[in-house]
Amino acid sequence: MALVVGIVRSPEEAFRASLGGLEIWWKTVFPGLLPPLMLAELLAASGLLHGIAALGSPLFRRLFRLPAAAGWVAAFGWTAGLPAGARETARLRERGLVRGREAESLLLLSHMPNPFLVIVVVGSGFLQAPAYGWAIAAGLWISGIATGMLWPRLSGNESNTTEAAGEPPIDGDVSHQPSGSALRRAYRAMQEARLADARPFGKQTADAVTSAVATLFAIGGLMMMSAVLLRIVQTALPGTDAWLTIPSLYEMHLGAYASGRSALFESAPAKAAALIAAALAWSGLSGLLQARAAWSGSRFPWPRFIAGRLLHAALALVATYPLAIAAERGWFAPLTPVWRGFAGPLAATEPAAGPLPSGWALLPGTTLAAVACLGIFVLLALLAALISPRRRGGDKRPK
């Protein structure tokens, strides 16, 4: 009701704020995240993430006290970004492969922002400093691993409870089998996952586009609603900067955008980068609602999930600050040319201060990204052909 009253009282401000959120989404978030989301879906369909999870399953069980089947969910969540981790965690929970506290720990571990969002959109687009994007991404990954290690021990999660019950593997995860080398087990997991998918590469690509666009439209809608809410809060607090602390609580994209244009980033960029990392780890109320929407079935563990996100945010703040100082000194300089200029310069100081230069218009950066995506598509097609279903010995064909 308060939001409705605010829109009725200031319709012009609400419209401008909504348009500003749309511009940020269309000209930075959409072009920056569409290719990575598509590639994440194709990597999952090709079985590559299953192979990676099979390789790391012994270390995964030892560090995070989760069954081997959970490794695939963590790999997919870290690659595709939220809410993919919550969706796959719910799927494992429905199949009985994770239960109780294990599902909560896996949900917390796999709820991560897309790495391309951090490096391309936040680093190159919002901050105009790709080095800070790499520092924030590294801080998020380090703190995510630390949170995943601490949370099961703090919550009393027992190790390998579901595997002890003799549950079957998911989607060809054969990393629990003792026979064969690690690489052979990883290859077998990739092949089984590819067989279980059974879609041709063209169908996989079309489904990846559909899924990525649907996810981005949901993000865009949340950004527009959050922008309207934040503008109303800003109108209620005129002449102050208190509203700058609020965007990160509601929506992580708008929070990163506002923090990158605050006075703090101009005076102390390392501290601002650490705060952005904490905001991305928290993921905002919109990120929490996305995870809840993807969590089908029984009651969502709201108190423990919020507590885990706050723990991750605190650890991200601590882990990112020294990395951001290192970025100031040029330690990440060898990594920045690849992403420089991809998202486009954002010269506006406010979302509603006029049109933003589009990331689509920067031909060199987008051309590089398009060529890279095309190369990955070709490699995935070759991989799909390599591990395609083979005929058994009983199938005799004329020579």
Score class of each variant (00 low, 15 high):
A70V: 00
V98D: 02
A90G: 15
A70L: 11
A68E: 08
V73C: 12
W72H: 15
T79A: 14
F64C: 13
S57L: 00
E104M: 02
F60Q: 06
L55I: 12
A53T: 10
W72C: 00
A80Q: 04
A80N: 14
F64E: 09
G81K: 03
P58N: 07
A45Y: 03
A45L: 02
G77M: 10
G71W: 08
S110L: 11
L106Q: 02
A103N: 01
I52S: 02
F76P: 02
W78I: 11
T89N: 01
W78Y: 13
L106G: 00
R101L: 13
G85A: 08
L106Y: 06
R93V: 04
G81H: 03
L66V: 13
E102N: 07
A80K: 03
P115C: 08
A90R: 01
L106E: 02
L82D: 04
F116Y: 13
T79E: 04
P67H: 09
S46G: 09
E102A: 10
P113G: 12
L109A: 09
A54F: 03
R61L: 04
G96R: 10
H50D: 08
G47I: 11
A45C: 08
A69C: 12
I52L: 15
H50W: 01
G96L: 13
F60G: 09
T79W: 06
E104F: 02
R99S: 13
I52C: 11
A70Y: 10
W78D: 02
R62Q: 12
L48Q: 04
A84N: 04
A45S: 14
P67R: 03
G81R: 01
L107N: 03
R95T: 11
G100T: 11
W72Y: 14
R61G: 14
L48G: 05
E102S: 09
A80W: 05
P83Q: 09
T79R: 04
G96E: 07
G71V: 10
L92R: 05
L92E: 06
G51L: 07
P67K: 05
L59C: 09
W72E: 13
A103W: 05
A86W: 06
P115L: 02
G56Q: 08
S105C: 14
R93C: 09
L66E: 07
S46Y: 05
G51T: 11
A80E: 04
G71A: 15
L49H: 02
L48I: 15
G77V: 13
R99N: 07
G85V: 11
L107R: 05
L63P: 01
H111W: 14
G56C: 14
